[in-house]
Design a protein around this nucleic acid. Structure first.
Lengths: 125, 125
DNA sequence: TGGCATACGAACTTCAAGGTGCGTAAAGGA
DNA sequence: TCCTTTACGCACCTTGAAGTTCGTATGCCA
């Protein structure tokens, strides 16, 4: 194995993760899972998300073709969002992720605590 | 829907993504998929990864209990890495991700180009 | 005697993601 | 006349992830 056979640019994992791994993206998709929903409704469903972050996340998702934006020209403005067919193809993946988390996250937590405890013991000697 | 029912802390998606979504993590797991492998071999398989980043990524994976580190006390030191059983539970998820990317990433690229083109058209008018 | 190889640690810098706060439009109600 | 509502845009600041560089142990070989 002298030449590298793995690179960031070609990596499918990376490419897909870059789409979904922003801080709020998964939460927004989750909020959209139930169907068309207004901007304000998304905001009130997701705890601690700011207007800027929600707008920014939705714009990225729209740019990536995962979400459609429907503006109703009313005053005050009414904007609805929904997953596109492409966006819904992400759902199985997110559900698997959720299942993995439910099944194995506790093991990760335990491993972390054990690791950190071992580090602490090693130091003071 | 007045009260938020989605939050970052409780979100399974987020929890799992935080483990895997670091820049090099998925690539390192991919390199480990074939079995036990030495530090230097991982480094030469992954293009453009620095020593620091590889060490740091491996240490995180070890802390999370996804990877085991076996040191052979030789000079110069020889260190081998392998996925733990917990680590291998991530593989189906990564494979699904890879499949999604192969199937749909082109659509995302196209959507981006279309979106950016539309933005450019809107400005100069 | 001194340089090489392996797998790191630590200090420093850079850069983009994320966060805060302010301003905006237009209609309608007090 | 002023405030409220909705869904933003813009400017600034902070934070932490990532990258760069240098140092380190210790046997071996020339």
């Amino acid at each position: 194995m002298r030449e590298p056979d793995i690179s960031i640019e070609e990596c499918s994992y990376r490419r897909a993760l870059e789409i979904v791994s922003n801080k709020w993206t998964a939460l927004v998709i989750y909020a959209l899972e139930g169907g068309t929903i207004r901007y304000g409704a998304i905001k009130s469903r997701i705890a601690d998300i700011s207007q800027k972050m929600l707008t920014q996340t939705l714009k990225q998702l729209e740019r990536d073709g995962l979400v459609v934006r429907k503006v109703t020209p009313v005053v005050p403005p009414a904007v609805e969002y929904a997953l596109t067919p492409l966006g819904t193809t992400l759902l199985p993946f997110l559900r698997l992720l959720k299942g993995w988390s439910a099944e194995h996250y506790a093991s990760v937590s335990n491993a972390r605590e054990a690791y950190d405890a071992a580090q602490k013991d090693a130091l003071p000697g």
